[in-house]
């Protein structure tokens, strides 16, 4: 195996919860609680979980939009967590983000041309003329007409705005793009257009993606490997095909069985989970999933399982699997 492009070691992001203006934080929201992962150049890693599991926070920690509480983020072997803002600048070119709602992530008062030119200005690349040429080329790459440069974000549909968001992300030829729910706000027919665009760009520029989403079918389609996250921790990781064919963790099994299948002939054997996701402020003792797990045993509430290799290239965090 080649050296990983990105390596995350035991990353933690604990948000303090203060009860008053001057009081010290007594409790913490453990949004991300000890996550390790690696991404190879040109690889797509899918990150799946329900709302509040910490998947977006993890993405933002990797892009250093948040300063993680603990842990390391190595990009090509260099630790990003402790770099100053200035020292981080060259890495920001290489790690970009695409957000869920392009209306909120594009400045409504700037033209599309200005939005796409900004990364070049910040990083001091090229003169005005070459920047304009780059903008025209970017628009063409993501399938927008070149006259779009003089228009404002509100003049575009949701799918087109997401194309603008993608153009901005690829402007500086990054090696890694963190896609945070990039298609979940889009209609079905537009969603497939954007997924195809992301896959084409990956081929052309050898991009690596961390693809964060809650839609398992979408994640399976685009990812090489998939990580399943529950309450701030990775509970299972395997190749995309493996995780859907033979999921090991009870949470993954129930997640996959919960997807409604667009085939009226197929009757699913659904594993219905009871209750809601517990709060990450006071996660359950032992295995965090034991409160909803259909096969939990008494020991699951006492001993916290570790993420261990259960089969080749297939890790799971479950006492019942790892003791077999």
């Amino acid at each position: 195996m080649t050296a990983p492009l990105l390596e995350v070691n035991d990353l933690k992001m604990h948000f303090p919860i203060k009860s008053g203006l001057f009081s010290r934080a007594k409790t913490f929201n453990r949004a991300v609680d000890g996550v390790s992962l690696s991404i190879q150049p040109g690889e797509t890693v899918g990150l799946v979980g329900e709302s509040g599991c910490g998947k977006s926070t993890l993405g933002r920690c990797i892009a250093r939009l948040y300063q993680p509480t603990e842990g390391r983020v190595y990009f090509k072997g260099n630790d990003l967590v402790h770099l100053s803002h200035k020292a981080l600048l060259p890495y920001r070119q290489n790690i970009q983000m695409i957000f869920q709602d392009p209306m909120e992530s594009l400045n409504a008062r700037h033209t599309v041309g200005e939005i796409l030119e900004e990364p070049f200005i910040i990083h001091g690349i090229g003169d005005a003329q070459s920047r304009r040429r780059s903008v025209a080329k970017l628009l063409d790459t993501v399938g927008l007409p070149s006259r779009s440069a003089t228009r404002y974000p509100f003049e575009f549909s949701g799918g087109q705005r997401q194309r603008i968001g993608i153009a901005r992300a690829i402007a500086l030829n990054p090696e890694l793009i963190i896609c945070d729910e990039p298609v979940s706000a889009l209609d079905v027919s537009i969603q497939s257009q954007i997924l195809n665009l992301l896959m084409d760009l990956q081929q052309e520029y050898n991009l690596a993606y961390l693809f964060i989403a809650h839609d398992l079918a979408v994640v399976k389609h685009i990812s090489d490997r998939v990580l399943i996250m529950y309450l701030g921790q990775i509970v299972e990781s395997a190749a995309s095909e493996t995780i859907y064919q033979s999921p090991l963790h009870p949470y993954t099994q129930s997640l996959i069985s919960a997807i409604p299948i667009p085939d009226p002939h197929r009757k699913t054997n659904r594993i219905l989970l009871q209750g809601d996701v517990p709060s990450p402020i006071a996660p359950p003792s032992g295995c965090r999933f034991h409160t909803r797990c259909p096969v939990a045993e008494p020991r699951c509430s006492e001993t916290a399982p570790s993420l261990l290799e259960a089969e080749t290239q297939h890790d799971a965090r479950c006492l019942l699997i790892n003791s077999q």
Binding site: G159, S189, S192, N196, M199, K220, H221, I222, S240, P262
Partner: peptide, 25 residues
Amino acid sequence: RGLLASIPTLDNQPKAPLEIIPGMV
């Protein structure tokens, strides 16, 4: 037909291009 073909399902070949409906509503 386009709607049915454009949704990724768990049976799809991973990373294969999806069917699309060009343009927009």
